[in-house]
Simulated scan of single mutants.
Amino acid sequence: MNTQIPKTRLRADRLALALRASDPSARLQAALTAGTTPEPEFVAPLVARCGVEPDFSVRDMLTWALTRMPRELALPAVLAELDSPVALARSQALHTLSKFGDPATWSAIRTEFLHDADPDIARTAWRAAVAVAPEPAHAGLARELAAEFGRGDSETMRSLSRALVALGDAATVPVRDASRDPDPAIRIHALATARLLEDPDASFALDPADAGRMATAFSGSRGAH
């Protein structure tokens, strides 16, 4: 009986071992090599490593390598990671879906991801949703994203604003409505986003004075009636 292990299986085993190397540069090279010479058997070790890889550059290379694999194998494996109990695995799966950019995966970007308590998952979900959402879903997605105005640090706010700007005209009404919110943090963030909608090439900038200006405007408007 022939018990010889197929060469592709041996290469997949070697890849899995290389992806566990202590040196991040060695792991990076292993992921690069896998993406350069893709094999269907590489999908499993690449996906498995995504959920535990601590180095950002290596994770990004793992994602690139997965986009080079046969899509009919890679996408289901990545989608399955959205149900992982490991936050990093879910976040990296969302990131990888954004790089695939396949509208067929839109239904997998569940609303719960957009509002996840973990800021890394939420930010990645925003980018993924914008990347794969079909145009008819843009208005609803913009409303969901606008519900996150005022959340987190400046980097989280910038990520949300850029996601909304990527939706274009669909974001106009939710951003306008949020700019009138009684919460000053929401107003400041929404107005910063409104400026980006007018000039997407501009820098993201929060202006605390916005809250006072809007409060004065609202007060004057109420007094006029």
Rank of each mutant, 00 (worst) to 15 (best):
A44D: 15
D55I: 05
A185W: 13
P54W: 13
A16N: 07
A21K: 08
M214V: 09
D60P: 03
F113C: 09
E135W: 09
V173G: 09
L167V: 09
A122C: 10
T216N: 02
T216M: 05
E135C: 04
A129I: 11
P40Y: 09
P119T: 07
R143D: 15
R27L: 04
S221T: 10
D199A: 06
R49A: 14
A16M: 07
L10G: 01
W106E: 12
R162W: 14
P76I: 13
A108M: 13
A137T: 13
R71P: 03
A166H: 15
P38Y: 01
R11W: 05
A133N: 10
A209G: 08
D181Y: 12
T172C: 07
A217K: 07
P103Y: 00
S91M: 09
M157Q: 15
R71D: 09
A215F: 10
S107A: 15
G150L: 09
R68K: 13
L196N: 04
M69F: 01
F42S: 04
T63K: 07
S98Y: 00
D207R: 08
P40K: 03
T3N: 03
I188L: 03
R27F: 02
A31L: 05
E135I: 11
G150A: 10
R222L: 07
V132H: 08
Q92P: 02
V58C: 08
T193K: 04
A129G: 11
P136R: 12
A77K: 03
A104Q: 06
A133Y: 15
L197K: 09
A128D: 02
T105E: 04
V86Q: 12
P45Y: 07
A224R: 12
P182T: 10
P208R: 01
H95I: 01
D60R: 11
F149L: 10
P208Q: 02
Q4M: 06
L15Q: 09
S203R: 08
A87Y: 07
V132M: 09
A131V: 03
D83W: 08
L114F: 15
A178W: 14
A129Q: 06
S84G: 02
A139D: 15
A93R: 00
V52E: 11
I186E: 06
E144N: 11
